Simulated assay, not measured.
Amino acid sequence: MNGITLELLDEILGNVEFKGQSGYERHLFGTAITPNGVVEYTDTIINDGTDVYYIKGEMGTGKSTLLEKVYKNAVLKGLNVEVYHTPLIKDNIETILIKDINVALTVSEIFKEKNYKLVDLDKCVNYDILDKYKEEIEYDKALIAKLLESGIENIKRAKKEHDAMEKYYIPNMDFNKIEKLKINIKERILEFK
């Protein structure tokens, strides 16, 4: 894993000179869990001319750790980086985009079947050990999928109730009064300067 990381860092950032100051990192989401299911926009984040590295690996193989090391090294060299996190576990990284050098790294399944540079972390796994737990792993994967599906159904029901409530609230709201109140509060706060 460390060897793959170092090779990748050298390939992507080896020729990048230090810019004299740290770059800027911006943290966002490119995927969301919505009433319509999991919605992903990674394909709109990464432009056609971008060099894309698809990071392949089962859960727990270190994909997010690898992405974090690449983006932090890019920032140290002075490059600006957009970091896109996963919606379910916000600390996990799904995609990084280094616009200054036109490079993206992603675990997004959208890029799985395309002709992008492949970084295969599955080859770091000791399957002799992992195969002993194959049944439990398959059970856990199925459970995660079922819980996600259940969560989406709950979000759907909540949205339906929210939309029903809005039918009563919106026609009875005086948005002009709310705007006047907002301005008044702002002016009162600024008086304390």
Rank of each mutant, 00 (worst) to 15 (best):
A164S: 13
I93D: 09
R157V: 11
C124D: 13
L97I: 04
L147P: 02
D100R: 03
N80T: 04
E161M: 10
I152W: 06
D140R: 14
A145D: 13
H85Q: 14
Y169L: 04
L79C: 03
K117H: 13
K77A: 06
K99I: 02
R157N: 14
K146I: 02
I129K: 14
V119P: 08
K77I: 06
N154R: 15
A158I: 12
A104G: 00
L143D: 12
D100F: 01
I137E: 03
V81T: 01
L130Y: 07
I93W: 07
E82T: 02
L130Q: 09
E161I: 10
E149S: 15
I129E: 15
L121G: 11
D120T: 11
L147I: 07
H162E: 12
E135F: 04
D128N: 13
E149Q: 12
K132M: 05
E161V: 10
L118K: 14
Y133G: 00
K114D: 14
L88S: 15
V83P: 05
N154Q: 15
N80Y: 02
D128W: 07
N102T: 00
A142Q: 11
V107L: 15
V81D: 01
I152P: 03
I144G: 08
L105T: 00
K112G: 03
M165V: 09
L79F: 04
Y139W: 06
L97K: 00
V119H: 09
D120E: 09
V103Q: 05
I155H: 07
Y169E: 00
K160V: 08
K114Q: 10
L105F: 02
S150E: 15
L76Y: 13
D122T: 14
Y139T: 03
Y168F: 14
A158S: 13
E153S: 10
Y127T: 07
I144E: 12
K112Y: 11
K132I: 01
L97P: 04
E113P: 04
N80M: 03
K99S: 08
K160I: 10
V103G: 01
E149R: 10
N80V: 03
A164N: 12
H85F: 09
K123L: 12
I98N: 02
D128R: 12
N80P: 06
V119N: 07
L130N: 01
R157W: 08
K141L: 15
I93P: 06
D128P: 01
L79H: 02
Y116N: 06
K134Q: 06
E82A: 00
D91L: 10
I98W: 02
I96V: 06
I144K: 13
L121K: 08
L147R: 14
N102M: 01
K167P: 05
I93A: 08
A158D: 12
T86S: 15
N92Q: 15
L147H: 12
I129A: 11
I152M: 04
E94T: 09
A164T: 08
I144S: 07
T106H: 02
N126M: 06
H85L: 12
A142E: 11
E135V: 03
L143W: 10
K167I: 13
E153P: 01
K90A: 11
T95L: 11
T86Y: 11
D131R: 08
